[in-house]
């Protein structure tokens, strides 16, 4: 009887310890028909940090990702915060309707999962997951992700080479090769300078002129823009 009690105690101790760390298999699917994702960053972190927060100003690191797809500053911040991460699992762009897989082992205390990737072609749109509590119960969980706007750049919808740099207006690229030129610019201001749900691309029906370089039958989307499947082992 004493032996049994000791064994049970030991088992309880082990299981409560392992519930702090997790082994995750992650699958991200780009659900859109015509929008690419730039390099993806997935982090597991403590409750004291995050990649972005809605209704607050974007950090410079988030702005760098959302305007140009460069995740290096976010990776540096996540490293400094002792987050566990998978950086760039798709090794470049994740095409419309394509999926990518990743495995992530979290350390004790990093109980929240977050994800970002820029939406192309947009000015400063990104797909995001903010601080999803990683379940302690083994199983497969599905989360649908929305498109956000960093609030740092006007959505002029003009494709301009080099505009991925901080503060340079324009969409840096349209990877589908199906955008136009000569757009006069949808707007030159951003009324909401906080991180918010993206209002969506507008586009127009003139690839040589009009207000937007985007095609209104190709580059729009409806939320959600991504499906995340997390298997807790």
């Amino acid at each position: 009887m004493k032996t049994l009690s000791l064994t049970l105690l030991a088992a309880t101790a082990i299981s409560s310890f392992t519930s702090q760390a997790a082994e995750l298999d992650i699958k991200l699917t780009n659900l859109t028909q015509g929008v690419h994702f730039t390099p993806i960053l997935i982090t597991a972190h403590s409750g004291d940090t995050s990649l972005f927060e809605v209704a607050t100003p974007a950090s410079t690191a988030l702005q760098t990702m959302a305007e140009g797809g460069n995740i290096a500053p976010l990776v540096d911040e996540a490293t400094a915060a002792n987050s566990d991460m998978v950086a760039n699992p798709a090794e470049g762009l994740l095409a419309p309707a394509a999926s990518t897989m990743a495995s992530l082992t979290t350390t004790e205390g990093n109980d929240y999962l977050s994800l970002t990737a820029m939406l192309l072609p947009t000015n400063d749109g990104f797909v995001g997951l903010n601080s999803w509590k990683i379940p302690t119960e083994a199983g497969t969980y599905t989360i649908y992700l929305n498109g956000y706007d960093a609030g740092t750049e006007a959505n002029d919808e003009r494709v301009v080479e080099g505009s991925g740099a901080l503060g340079v207006p324009g969409i840096p690229a349209a990877p589908g090769g199906n955008a136009g030129t000569g757009g006069s610019g949808v707007t030159s201001s951003e009324s909401n300078t906080m991180v918010h749900i993206h209002p969506g691309n507008l586009g127009d029906d003139d690839l040589e002129a009009g207000i937007s370089d985007l095609d209104n039958t190709v580059h729009r989307w409806l939320n959600p823009v991504a499906k995340l499947t997390v298997t807790v082992k």
């Binding site: 028909q33 015509g34 309707a97 586009g203 039958t217 580059h219 409806l222 823009v225």
Partner: peptide, 17 residues
């Protein structure tokens, strides 16, 4: 595109098409 994806929504004559 010949793959199934989520629909981007209809544009309509009143919203630029």
């Amino acid at each position: 595109v010949n793959y199934v994806a989520m629909h981007p929504g209809v544009v309509s004559q009143h919203d630029g098409l």
